[in-house]
């Protein structure tokens, strides 16, 4: 239960950062925060009360492990998040080279 609200809070904080912050790097951080929120949401959807990690070994039977599918999805989403962040940061480097600023309201040759 707590985890649903925590993930909701993380997503909300991320969107807030995107809306209010002017610094491009902070906006990218906001994207990462949203990503973490979504990951937490997926994980908590897969959680089953009182059960353990889905690795079958002596002492862990299939009847007491959690849902492995959302965890697999999270693994994929983490990698996608890393990729987007890396690319976005390198684009920001290029933006900075041209505009000498990271303020998104000053980076406006084109109209929004």
């Amino acid at each position: 239960m707590m985890f649903y609200f925590a993930s909701a809070a993380l997503i909300a904080i991320g969107i807030y950062m995107l809306m209010v912050k002017k610094n491009l790097i902070k906006m990218i951080l906001g994207l990462s925060v949203i990503d973490s929120g979504v990951n937490l949401l997926l994980i908590s959807i897969g959680y089953i009360n009182g059960k353990t990690a889905p690795i079958i070994q002596p002492g862990v039977s299939p009847s007491n492990v959690v849902d492995p599918l959302p965890q697999a999805l999270v693994l994929t989403n983490i990698v996608i998040g890393v990729s987007v962040t890396a690319l976005a940061l390198s684009v920001v480097i290029r933006v900075y080279k041209h505009y000498k600023t990271l303020n998104s309201s000053e980076v406006r040759d084109l109209k929004w």
Partner: peptide, 12 residues
């Protein structure tokens, strides 16, 4: 210069 700005906007 324009492309970079468009990219960052599109990416976000």
């Amino acid at each position: 210069k324009e492309a970079m700005e468009a990219t960052i906007k599109y990416m976000i």
